[in-house]
Amino acid sequence: MMNLDPTPYKALAIGMWALGMFLFLSAGKRRTVTLLAHATFLSGILVLAGFTWMLWMDLGRPPMRTLGETRLWYALFLPAIGYTTYIRWNYKWILHYSGVMAIVFLMINLMRPGVYDRDLMPALQSIWFVPHVIVYMFAYAVLAVSAIVAVKGLWLYYFEKQALSLSRFLPVLGPETDADGKVVPWSMQLADNLVYIGLGFLTLGLLFGALWGKEAWGHYWMWDPKETWAFLTWIMYLAYVHYRHHRPRQVVGPLWVLSMAFIVLMICWFGVNYLPSAANSVHTYTG
């Protein structure tokens, strides 16, 4: 039971993202359509940001406690990062993939309305709570985009022919093209940049968690299952960075590491709840 009905806001955000992506795809060289696409897509993000803010006010606590609430942040950050990536590095297809992913996450939230619960247990009432979760969700979203890059790279590598023929119907399945439709050679720069940013935030999240743990429980690291998997996620991306540094011209190996790393990340985020080793965990998300 809540005073705020989330359905219209989430549905509106989904609709605007879908419309924005459609406009981007069909714009071609028409400037007005492109402008409209930008406006629509960005409005979708603003609607969801506004809803998140209202939910925060309505709950009287940061909406970061349940799994559904963390999915909300994820769905907010993903399109924002996809859009920034598009503006900053001009990879248009990224926008569509992250948009679709955000829509999927919001759909899950729509179909599984979480428990509306204002209670926040004492251990979570800390100045570290908000920075810890926000920084983590942001890292997760950036790294999700890097995983999209990895999967796309592997798809192009192993299914070159299919990619080329399918891209005639759905350009986002093919290689990146420039304004004149010429194929742009595959580059690892986007993946690298995303991982540097993502790993930076992941490290911040890990350290904020450690500092908070010290205040709340008297220890900064206890190898609790959630912490164990957070460490694994972190070290997988560390492996990627060092592998890339050493073998800058290898592509397929690092792309595999990047895909695996994201699987570990997802286990850390919500898979841990289902692992027998987590039977005694002190911090899994509820709901």
Binding site: P185, W186, H245, R247, R249, Q250, V251
Partner: peptide, 26 residues
């Protein structure tokens, strides 16, 4: 910019994904 190649393993570093993305590469 990318740092210079690890020269001590110059020979190893030249191993790259032969033919990867062949049609995409100039």
């Amino acid at each position: 910019p990318l740092p210079a190649e690890d020269t001590e393993t110059g020979q190893e570093a030249q191993v790259h994904d032969e033919g990867a993305f062949a049609m995409l590469v100039e």
